[in-house]
Design a protein around this nucleic acid. Sequence first.
DNA 1: CTCCCGATAT
DNA 2: ATATCAGGAG
Length: 217
Amino acid sequence: MNKAQVVEFFSRLAADNPHPETELEYGNPYQLVVAVALSAQATDIGVNKATRRLFEEVKTPAQMVALGEAKLKQHIKTIGLFNTKAKNVIALSEQLIADHGGEVPADRDALEKLPGVGRKTANVVMNVAFGAETFAVDTHIFRVGNRTGLARGKTPLAVELKLDKIVPQPFRLHAHHWLILHGRYVCKARTPECWRCVVCDLCAFKPKTPAPRQRGA
DNA sequence: CTCCCGATAT
DNA sequence: ATATCAGGAG
C-alpha cells in the first residue's frame, strides 16, 4: 500500500467515524488502567459488565487495596483469566501508591513496570488518558494490519513500528481506534464482512464468499 | 513456547 | 464443539 492509499484508507475510516473512542468504561485514568488490564483475551462488553459495579465502589488504588484480592475476584469472576488478573490489579495498585503517589504515570516505561501491564496496555493508556500518538497493537490491529496489507509484521511490536512509520498526520492520534473498531465490527477474525467494508478496494485480502443475499434488496 | 480462563459467536 | 475475545508473565 503506497502513501496515497494509506491516506485514503484512514480518510474513509475517519469519515465513517470522526470521533472514535475506547468502548471500555472508566471514570479516571486509574480505572482505565484497570479496565485495560482486565481486557486481555476478553471482550469489552464482558469487562464493562464487571467493572460497572466494581468502579462504583473502587475509584482509587487505595480503595482497590482495601477491597482486597478475594472480593476483587468475585467482581471479575465472569472475565477469563480472573485469578492472575485479580492478583495483578492488587499488585499494580500497591505499586501506584508506593512509586507514584497513587497517580497513573504519563510515561510508557513506568506503565510497563506495573504488574499485568505490557506494551499494548501501556500504549492504550498513553493514547486514551494522555493523548499520546501511540499504536496499541492488539489482536484486532494485528489481524487488520496483516490481512489488509496496511502494516504487516510477524509480531505485534513489528506491526506497531510499521504503523508508526507509515501513518501520517492528521490520523496518528486516532489511527489505533479506527483500526480496532474496523477489526471488531467489519474486518472480523472468523468472517470478515468485506461486502460492507469501506476500504475493500485498497485491501490485499480477497474474500472467497461474496456478499450474502439480503431480503428485499 | 506455555499457561492463564469465562462468555459468546459460529 | 471450537474459535475468539483490546495480553502478559514465567
